[in-house]
């Protein structure tokens, strides 16, 4: 993965065109959700060894936010989708 990323809009592009935000956390809570839901969303991470989903931004390309499904041990990418198709970072 981590040398080339297949952007769903632009095709295979080098890693340095992207900026990375980090793990897709639990969904952004409703505004009246309890504080611990917010704590979980903002701070807690699964950080798995293995299959992982994270936000990448094609900053030097289409400027779309993408969600990569990527293995953190092998670096293999199994899927790249436009983040908007997943609505608000919901976990699968």
């Amino acid at each position: 993965m981590s040398s080339l990323v297949k952007c769903p809009h632009c095709g295979l592009r080098p890693r340095e065109e992207f900026t990375i935000r980090g793990e897709v956390p639990s969904p952004r809570p409703a505004s009246d959700a309890p504080a611990n839901a917010w704590f979980d969303h903002v701070y807690l991470r699964d950080n798995p060894r293995g299959e992982h989903r994270e936000y990448w931004h094609h900053a030097g390309g289409c400027r779309r936010w993408l969600v990569l499904s990527r293995n953190t041990i092998t670096h293999d990418i199994s899927a790249v989708v436009d983040a908007s198709t997943l609505k608000a970072g919901t976990k699968s």
């Binding site: 900026t19 935000r21 952004r28 936000y55 931004h57 900053a59 400027r63 779309r64 936010w65 436009d82 983040a83 908007s84 609505k87 608000a88 970072g89």
Partner: peptide
């Protein structure tokens, strides 16, 4: 800009 794009595309695509 990146932050706004995140908000617009990821948090509130609707």
């Amino acid at each position: 800009l990146t932050h706004l794009e995140f908000c617009a595309q990821v948090l509130w695509p609707e």
